[in-house]
Amino acid sequence: MNMSYKEYGQLVKKMSPGSPIYKTFPLAFLIGGTICSVGEALRLWLSSMNMSKEECGIWVSVILIFITAVLTGFGVFHKIAKFGGAGTFVPITGFANAVVSPALEFQTEGFILGVSSKMFIIAGPVIVYGTIAAMASGTICYIINCLGGNI
């Protein structure tokens, strides 16, 4: 075949259909927006019951995680995610699905080496780098505090 890797790469690019962004962008906006407004509705409802701001935030996350877990269990979540794309995986629902879906899938390998160890194959990096970033952020705060500043 008379073709350099580069030429072939260009041919592949030309022949490969791209994502239909006229569909994916509006859907990500709509579905992501809807999930966030559900969160907002929950937050308003909880704060009307005299909950503190912090508690409200926690319960909103927990409820959304719970809903995602149930939808993942019934095999519905990935059908919504197929349309939602980033609209479903960027909100906390995506994190929850990333934990619940391998847990569900790897039950055939048992609860120790299957469910619990595979639980973090996708979500693990989020926790690891989130924690590292938070520690970096904390270090900066600490230094500023020591210098007498306030952040």
């Binding site: 962008f25 990500a28 906006f29 579905i31 794309g85 980033a86 995986f89 960027v90």
Partner: peptide
């Protein structure tokens, strides 16, 4: 309430679109 929901919808939706741009 409607305004709060609308704000959440728009800002949340936009953050998701940024994710979709990266994905696509």
């Amino acid at each position: 309430i409607a305004i709060s929901l609308l704000k959440a919808f728009c800002v949340g939706g936009l953050i998701c679109v940024v994710g979709q741009i990266l994905l696509d």
